[in-house]
Design a protein around this nucleic acid. Sequence first.
DNA 1: GTGAAAGCGCTAACAC
DNA 2: GTGTTAGCGCTTTCAC
Lengths: 353, 353
Amino acid sequence: MSKQQNNENKVVTIYDIAREAGVSPATVSRVLTNNVNVRKEKRDKVLCLVRKYNFKPNAFARSLSDTRSRVIGILVADIRNPYYAELFESCERAAQNADYTVLLANFSGNFQREGEQLEMLQEQRVGAFIQMGGSADALFSKQEYVKLLNRTMARTPVVVTGKVEGMDCHAVRVDSAKVMELLMEHLIGLGHRRIALIGGRMDVLGTYEKFHQYQRSLKAHQISFDPALVAGDGSYDMESGYLLMNRMFSQGTELTAVIAVNDFVAAGVMRSIMEHGKKVPQDISLVGCDNTYIARMMIPDLTSVDYNYEEYGNCLVDTAIRLIRGEEVEPIQMITPRLAVRNSSAKAPEKSG
Amino acid sequence: MSKQQNNENKVVTIYDIAREAGVSPATVSRVLTNNVNVRKEKRDKVLCLVRKYNFKPNAFARSLSDTRSRVIGILVADIRNPYYAELFESCERAAQNADYTVLLANFSGNFQREGEQLEMLQEQRVGAFIQMGGSADALFSKQEYVKLLNRTMARTPVVVTGKVEGMDCHAVRVDSAKVMELLMEHLIGLGHRRIALIGGRMDVLGTYEKFHQYQRSLKAHQISFDPALVAGDGSYDMESGYLLMNRMFSQGTELTAVIAVNDFVAAGVMRSIMEHGKKVPQDISLVGCDNTYIARMMIPDLTSVDYNYEEYGNCLVDTAIRLIRGEEVEPIQMITPRLAVRNSSAKAPEKSG
DNA sequence: GTGAAAGCGCTAACAC
DNA sequence: GTGTTAGCGCTTTCAC
């Protein structure tokens, strides 16, 4: 079974174009890559044939002989999460503008698949990796994955959205402390003193940073820290927010505001609050993080923290490309968050009792 | 600048493995592809070295000489839409099980990018295309895109989730008439007679089919059709649902139930209903389509129609692979929908007036 | 069972 | 400017 495609149509190559144009294959290649000058007359002839046959250069052959791959592999924790989807979309656009292609690999939070997908991307000889979430965001990274990533980095530049303990891959990440500071200043400014922090896992870098800043902000405003106001069960989904908030109610924890670790969790918290007969924001203010469309979908719509996804994606891709070119890039770049105030947060209710 | 990667690490090839194992490159290839028998002793030697060097065969070289590409290109209308994200994820998993790789290209509803991405996938010499949404779902397809797709199909099998007018590419799609029938039977069974249909564009196949079935279901129950109950503005997003429902209120259209063309639109409709001081489902029942997590996120949670995404993805990928292999496949395969009843739909309120 | 050798389609030295 | 040529790393006849 040879190279023929599944119907008779012979695939056109630069040789065919060259023959018909009466030039050499190299000249066709020159026209295509636009690197060297070719006499206008020949160039036109070639371009005309390219159009005539709808010729598309074979990316495999190209990558095989070319200097470096113009493909950036993106490994994402869960493409169904709008945060990642938005960020991916932004990277894709940035890559296209720079005449690069992105190759998405997704592992849906399955850590075994994370490794497999990484290997797949290696076989595809991507010029660089961008990893969003997953093991690359862990405060203490799994040794096995670090080893895998180290072997990868020996050949291919790696950019992560977090930080891999014990590796010096490049990072572009959100300033999570700033995220928390924005939310805390917002809520404290509205008179809240009993503020809960819900969702997530402490061994995820961003979550850890948020928790840390939460405590710092309390201290800065002379509010004492109450551990009963902090709850996380390791997840970042709606169900998790729902259950954690239910627990807080059943424990009778007094509070006037809730910070959810992301918008998904906030959606679960919202349901729990409603089911307990309370109103957002009159009784309890609720805020989230990531400013995904989930925030705009909730009723009332959710105050959240936005990251400027376009800038974020641009920065990731730009970093990857510069590394492919062998340029120097700062090891850590931060994305500055911005508060998006909506209707789920309001002045703290008057003390009743 | 030659093939070297960005650090000194020379990339290992089958020649290196062959030399060190004292066998020919061909034998290494045989071990890797597992096609022909190799004496156990040599095979072990080779496998050992493969592990030692973390050798990964170069997918480009492989695809260049190999029979056909083991990559399936997936062109999706908008990966940020959870419907597509879910379906993509399912395809990815199915492909992996069959030892294929998927390559995602996304165009975010931008029709110019749709074409560009299609060309990109062609350059990547994917073995087959799966197109989800976009021009492939249009009732009357744009001639320009049809031409592009036709040229593509000359070389590469195409599977779409809709139908391309005037082309015989293979289709795997949801039975949209059945979707509507399920919803109508559900609502009519609950006593509703004034049922609105909101969102979408009539030149999208699925939407058209829904509208058609909507009328048939009405007729089957001797309910007269009122055009005032149908509204669409071409979009499938939240904003659109919100505005259309607002308009229905301002026009004083009497109704007890709303069918939204998808969950996104339903979310917008929900907001409008709430803002008009009505309650779901006590005053108005609301149902959606696609059963994305949006349905589970809404309060009350939304009755919607599910498609069994796993089966859907499997079927798409399976079809693509069989076409790559040159096997015969039915031109149209249908995915059977299923009702997911939740708390947004209830018995029609007693007639008050 | 295994090696030698041709070739997949392209790019980039190197000549002219 | 442009043609010739030598690979890129793999798979696959074809001999042996």
